[in-house]
């Protein structure tokens, strides 16, 4: 029983991080309709950014979230307004999938040239502490990571629900043409949404850096995780990302504990394929209009 509870706890903590790492992907997918295969790069770039800030300037990764988020927001905005915009207008939405894939390849190679192929970790002073919780134990970093994820997700949910900017984004997602007729600058909003998604991914990366080892090559896994989270939870909402992320974390933890640690990937993708076939609109959230 203790083992089961401990596994559940680990799964939920992992799931919180998955949620934060996926919410930007979900937002971009829901509003712009673009599957952004560069998403994992933003996550890994956030982790590398936190590493550099921590190693060179001694800034705690949780504080580093702010400059990293701002920097990636700018990168995301410019990237959407140039390359992605061009790809969508000159070719097609599906072609934008391939363009983001090409950019991801370049960026991964670039990160490997700069930081080398080694596995990196960030170890702040609190990284080896853990708190007893009855018979269970939980690492401080994981609590911190989970807390930061939940705070950021809540902030994003509030921004989307309560502010003018959030309403504008949701209007654009529903009907770009109508939003434009109402006087919204849709192109600019698309850029801002993309920047927001990139910033959330970068923040997630900074948090992931203190919990897990990372390399440039792990970007593929983070992109795929984001996709699975979105398919599980439904697109375009922080709540969907949270549900999907927690589920993915639980699936991962249970599979590793009870089936075999080498089969987590297979289990995650099996759930993905089954989910697409059985309930393509996600557990909660909007239907994928064009999935079939």
């Amino acid at each position: 029983m203790t083992l089961f509870l401990q596994t559940t706890l680990n799964g939920l903590v992992l799931g919180g991080i998955y949620s934060l790492a996926a919410v930007g992907f979900s937002l971009v997918f829901g509003v712009l309709g673009i599957v952004n295969l560069t998403h994992g790069i933003f996550v890994v770039a956030g982790a590398y950014g936190a590493l550099v800030l921590f190693a060179e300037l001694g800034i705690d990764p949780l504080v580093g979230i702010v400059p990293i988020g701002l920097a990636l927001f700018a990168v995301g905005y410019v990237y959407q307004r140039t390359i992605i915009q061009w790809a969508v207008s000159r070719a097609s939405l599906v072609a934008s999938l391939v363009v983001t894939f090409g950019v991801a390849m370049m960026a991964r190679n670039g990160l490997q040239l700069v930081f080398g192929p080694d596995v990196h970790t960030i170890t702040p002073s609190y990284s080896f502490l853990s708190i007893p919780l009855g018979p269970l134990r939980i690492d401080v970093v994981r609590i911190v990571a989970l807390g930061a994820s939940l705070v950021l997700l809540t902030v994003l949910a509030l921004v989307l629900a309560r502010t003018h900017f959030g309403r504008a984004i949701r209007a654009t997602a529903q009907q770009p043409l109508a939003a434009e007729l109402c006087g919204l600058n849709v192109k600019n909003l698309h850029g801002l949404t993309f920047g927001l998604g990139a910033a959330m991914a970068g923040a997630a990366g900074a948090i992931i850096g203190i919990v897990q080892p990372f390399t440039a090559a792990s970007e593929v896994a983070w992109t795929l995780n984001a996709f699975i989270v979105v398919v599980l939870g439904g697109i375009g909402s922080p709540a969907g990302a949270l549900v999907g992320g927690l589920l993915l974390g639980l699936i991962n933890a249970y599979t590793a504990q009870y089936v075999g640690p080498s089969l987590t990937q297979a289990a995650m993708f099996l759930v993905l394929v089954l989910m697409l076939l059985v309930r393509p609109s996600g557990l909660l959230g909007n239907a994928f209009g064009e999935s079939r």
């Binding site: 795929l224 993708f269 697409l276 393509p280 999935s291």
Partner: peptide, 28 residues
């Protein structure tokens, strides 16, 4: 039959999933 009911990006990613699942099973 099941997988071709999906379209576009969903079919693409579902196939990616199939290849990962089969690969992991063959490996493990």
């Amino acid at each position: 039959y099941p997988i071709l009911r999906l379209r576009g990006i969903y079919f693409a990613i579902a196939m990616l999933g199939v290849s990962q699942v089969v690969g992991e099973l063959v490996n493990n």
